[in-house]
Each structure stands twice: as C-alpha cells, then as structure tokens.
Amino acid sequence: MQTRNKTLYMMSFVLAAACSRTSPDTSAPEPVVEPTPAATAPAERNTSDDEIFGVLDVINDEAVAHGEFMKKWAKTQKVKEFAAMMINDHDFVRERELKVRGALDLRATSSRLASDLKQDSQQKLDTMGKIDKGDTLDKAYIDIQIDVHAGWLAALDNKLLPYAQTDELRDELEEVRKIVESHYNLAIDMRTKLTGETK
C-alpha cells in the first residue's frame, strides 16, 4: 500500500509539472518597440510647425555663415556691404523667430528638407573656400546667393507656407519670404553690376 501511495504521489507530481509547462503564459508580454514616425514616413511628408522652425534655423544659419565668410574675403566694398546686410538681417530674423517659437511653445526639429538645404549650402560654402580671392570669388558668392535664395523661396512657397498650422507661424513665414525675396532681387542686381564692372 505504501508503495502504491508513493507511486500515485509521484505521478501526480509529474502531471502537475507537465501542466505547469503547457499552461498559457499569463505574465505581461514584452513591449513591442514600434518604429518612430520619422523612420517610416515618406521623405516628402508634410512639414509640421516644429520642422518648419528647424528649416528657418537652417536658412538663417547658412545665410549668416556665407555672409561671415565674404565679409572677411570679399574684394569689393559692395560685396562686403551685401554680406554684412545678410548677417544683420538674418540675425534679426533669427531673434524674432525665437520669440515666436517660444510664444507657441514649439521647438526647432530636424527634417529631410532642413538637412537637404543645410548640405547644399555647406557644399557651396566649401566651394567658395576653394576659389581664388578677388573678383572671381565676389562673383561666385553673388551667383551662389542667387541660387540658394531661389531654393529658399521655393521651399517657403511649396513646403513651408502650405503646411503651417498656426497663424503666428504663417505670418512669420510671410515676413521671412519678403526678406528672402528682397535679398534674391538685390543679388541679381549686384551680379549685373559686378559683370559690368569687370567687362
């Protein structure tokens, strides 16, 4: 009888152990890490207000960087003055945008557009660094300003203004556009003058 009881006891123990291995797992599942929207969104997605401020930061930073370079290396006084104007105007715009952004409680975040504009602008700055100082560099700088300002105007019209979510940001973008267009027109006029002077 004792042997039989011991056998029953062992069988019940084995069955209990087997059941514990096959019973459903009721513990909390491991969290699944979802990909961030930035990792899966298409390259040409609509730009949010945070991303728009990121693009504006790039425009201001790159305009100032080009201006600082030419303020140091320009040959003609007209080009030096143009470079100084670029620095002053975009420093002013940057300060104003910081106030607008703070009032809206927004940040400046990166985006494909901001990265593309920054890369293009920095490549052009690198190109200027390889050009001999003098008339050739002065003309190259003005040509580059015409090119980058045309790109900034296209970005403002097609990728920033249509997607601004707040009236305050939309108003700021309109003001930035006026300044960028003014610089673009001045650069075209400057190129005509420089070309005439070197003929």
Rank of each mutant, 00 (worst) to 15 (best):
H66P: 04
V176F: 08
I131E: 00
R45Y: 09
T198N: 09
T166Y: 03
E168T: 11
E34S: 08
G54M: 07
E51V: 08
G129M: 06
R107M: 09
A114H: 01
S111Q: 11
E175V: 14
S111V: 13
V93K: 01
K99Q: 15
T198I: 07
M128D: 02
R112V: 15
V79Y: 00
A65P: 02
L156H: 00
L117E: 02
R191H: 11
E95P: 06
T26L: 15
L106C: 04
A187Y: 05
V33S: 07
M190H: 04
S23Q: 11
G67K: 00
L125M: 05
M190D: 02
A43G: 04
M1A: 11
A17V: 14
I188E: 12
A16K: 02
V14N: 03
E62Q: 15
K139W: 00
E174K: 15
A63P: 01
E181T: 14
R21L: 15
A74D: 04
E68Y: 05
G134T: 04
T36C: 08
N158P: 03
F69C: 03
V55E: 01
R191N: 12
R112Q: 14
K193A: 10
R21D: 06
A43N: 09
D120M: 13
I144T: 12
H183C: 08
T192V: 08
T127H: 05
M11T: 07
K133T: 09
F13W: 08
A150P: 01
E174Q: 15
L106D: 00
P37L: 07
A38M: 14
P31N: 03
A63V: 03
A39Q: 15
T109I: 11
D132M: 13
L160P: 01
M1G: 09
E175D: 15
I142Y: 04
I144S: 10
I142K: 01
D50R: 06
L169S: 02
M85P: 00
V180C: 05
L194G: 06
L8D: 05
P42N: 07
E175H: 12
S115T: 15
K130H: 08
A28Y: 05
A28R: 11
E51R: 05
E197V: 07
R4M: 07
V180P: 02
S23A: 14
D126F: 04
R112L: 10
P162D: 08
T3M: 10
W152E: 15
G67I: 01
Y163G: 04
L106E: 02
